[in-house]
């Protein structure tokens, strides 16, 4: 079936974004029936802005997963960066830009460490990034004596909560949405470049890639750095949108991995597109919005979420055996 349909020229064969587009379509129809107002430009724009952090994390996670690894540390990295930024800025607007640079650089550095431990010391990435998760959470609690200190400046927060006002038709376009669109274009271009093809080749068959002269370790390390950078940007947006807390990023690693798999990317590497991964994240967020509209109460939410994830992944897995 997939071969007979016209396909967009994506750099990879299987795991295209078709199934996830279908699931997204079904959810949109459900939303339209239940809550037609939601599809009005204003609320749609703010929904897209709200979804920006998880979309970014999914894109970052995609680079790592398609190269055959995992990054379990991104959620704790987001938390750590938000808490660090708040304490360093401490409400002083002048410190906004240096701290923002520090957030991005340190996030990239954490990714670099993940990558180096994984590829040089040959520690499975599951364990590397799990250890990093424990280290980051422990360190950030330790550093702030158990409760977040300081606050973010308004200049820092505007990226996550402000918007370009009075745009014709659309109304309010959140900065977060513009940032995510820009980075999505960059990510797609990157995946179509030589680096993108090499990344997929490394995930598909590391041995073959190595024999063809690819530096597998270096390629995977770059993927981890990209994931770290994505977490840094997500931290800036999330800190701006929802403020400072130790819960800022908790559980986001699992959401990101789920989103990536929903988007048709195979765990283990080598298959799937970055567009699919980002659409997967959007679908997941829409799912949460839908649960709100249907009045699913807070404590039952995980169960509904679990059931729908299993269903959705089963639907997309039915088309391409993943292991």
């Amino acid at each position: 079936m997939q071969d007979t349909l016209p396909r967009r020229a994506l750099p990879v064969r299987a795991g295209g974004p078709l199934p996830i587009l279908a699931i997204l379509g079904v959810l949109l129809v459900l939303v339209a029936i239940r809550q037609p107002d939601f599809l009005a430009p204003a609320s749609l724009m703010s929904f897209l802005g709200r979804s920006a952090p998880i979309i970014l994390l999914a894109a970052g996670q995609y680079f790592v997963i398609v190269s055959g690894e995992f990054d379990l540390s991104v959620g704790s990295l987001v938390t750590a960066e938000v808490v660090i930024a708040a304490r360093l800025i401490d409400g002083d607007p002048d410190r906004t830009w240096p701290v923002m640079a520090l957030v991005l650089v340190s996030a990239a550095f954490v990714g670099l460490v993940n990558g180096l431990i994984t590829s040089w010391l040959r520690v499975p990435s599951f364990i590397t990034t799990l250890g990093m998760l424990l280290i980051l959470v422990g360190a950030v609690y330790l550093w702030s004596d158990g409760s977040p200190k300081g606050e973010l400046s308004e200049q820092f927060r505007r990226f996550g909560r402000r918007a370009v006002e009075d745009v014709p038709v659309l109304g309010r376009v959140p900065y977060a949405l513009l940032i995510v669109l820009l980075l999505a274009v960059l990510a797609t271009v990157l995946m179509r470049s030589d680096f993108g093809r090499i990344l997929v080749a490394v995930g598909d068959n590391p041995r073959a890639a190595e024999l063809s002269g690819v530096r597998v370790g270096r390629t995977r390390t770059i993927a981890f750095v990209l994931s770290g950078c994505a977490a840094g940007v997500a931290a800036i947006l999330l800190g701006g949108y929802s403020g400072v807390s130790f819960q800022a990023g908790s559980g986001l690693e699992f959401s990101a991995i789920t989103a990536v798999v929903l988007g048709g990317v195979a765990l283990g590497g080598g298959r799937g597109s970055v567009a699919g991964a980002m659409l997967g994240a959007l679908t997941l967020e829409l799912l949460f919005a839908l649960m709100n509209f249907f009045g699913v109460s807070g404590t039952v939410r995980p169960a509904v979420q679990g059931a729908i994830i299993l269903l959705a992944v089963a639907v997309s897995a039915a088309r391409s055996p993943s292991r």
């Binding site: 699992f254 991995i257 789920t258 798999v261 195979a266 765990l267 283990g268 109460s297 807070g298 404590t299 039952v300 939410r301 995980p302 169960a303 509904v304 979420q305 679990g306 059931a307 994830i309 299993l310 992944v313 089963a314 897995a317 039915a318 055996p321 993943s322 292991r323």
Partner: peptide, 23 residues
């Protein structure tokens, strides 16, 4: 049977149980 990756399948079942326990 459904060929869902073990990571996602057990994560999903975990969420089902979490929902039951939390509620």
């Amino acid at each position: 049977r459904t060929r869902i990756d073990a990571f996602i399948a057990t994560l999903g079942v975990g969420l089902l149980l979490k929902g039951y326990l939390d509620s």
